[in-house]
Nucleic acid binder design. Sequence first.
DNA 1: GTTTACCTTGACGTTCGCGTTAGTGTTTCG
DNA 2: CGAAACACTAACGCGAACGTCAAGGTAAAC
Lengths: 163, 163
Amino acid sequence: MTTKRAPTIEPASQEHAYLQIGEVAERTGVTQRTLRFYEEKGLLKPPSRLDGGFRLYSEDDVRRVEEVKRLQTLLGFTLADIKDMVEAEEIKSQIKATYRRDAEVSERRAKIEKAKEVTVRQVAVIDQKLAALLDMKSHLEEKVTRYDGWLQHLDDLASLPAG
Amino acid sequence: MTTKRAPTIEPASQEHAYLQIGEVAERTGVTQRTLRFYEEKGLLKPPSRLDGGFRLYSEDDVRRVEEVKRLQTLLGFTLADIKDMVEAEEIKSQIKATYRRDAEVSERRAKIEKAKEVTVRQVAVIDQKLAALLDMKSHLEEKVTRYDGWLQHLDDLASLPAG
DNA sequence: GTTTACCTTGACGTTCGCGTTAGTGTTTCG
DNA sequence: CGAAACACTAACGCGAACGTCAAGGTAAAC
């Protein structure tokens, strides 16, 4: 049995502190190519690197990948759209960084409001999709009912002698 | 004012019995190219033609186009997937055609059950999407709440004299 | 220290879902 | 009739989202 290679540098006492690209790919179900592609397109911030140049991802990065994938497959956003969204997400980090005393309160407020706005819009999109999906579902269920009716009809015919 | 050209052949006494490709495009919001493309890919059955070769679409065709579009943009299915679905839809017509007395009752039953199966699977897919969307929505709403909290916090700070 | 597994950066290829000419035919208006 | 408006097929083009080599460098195991 070949021994799996473990993440080289882990900040002592933390498990799985950093992951290489292969492990991230395995966990998230995307390919390594996709991870590099996302980075290239600005959907993932350039991860830290091992001395040799190997990418080292954090758990946050993993969550980010999963979020991107959800936004893509479930909501059907393009990667360009998603980029805008995750950039708005970045604001959260920036907000905490901008927390140098109360230096720029209005700037801080503006950023939060921007982030909130983006989020609210996402909710609106979701609501649209939900409504449309529910509509489709009821239509489909009607169809099933109709099919069942036809099948029942066939049963009834079969249980009679002859026409 | 240029007089709009009306569908040439309409079965007397029916309004809008047949539509040309341009009108269908306008109604459905897709381009003529898209309509021909769908036909090419088997998503639309080849429509009837005018003597000169112009396509003549029925209202059913229009509904079909709209359904395809919904499946694509709302549910994010590929055209290949959608083809399978609408083909299952075709079964409905076939069922009525197979209604030559009670000739092949078991065949008829088989087709209905197939159609029902496909529909049930579509409902399952929708349920998955619904669950995922609801999950996302609650997450997003939490985020909004958090943003509001931060904004409120800033308000509170502002209403105080000095730190 | 060499094997082996894993990673790196290019760079070209592919599939999907159409867009966009190009060149030609058809139908309706006046 | 001719001019507009509309349609036809064929074929090449394109952006998105990766897939797939190729030609190496690196890290861990033995």
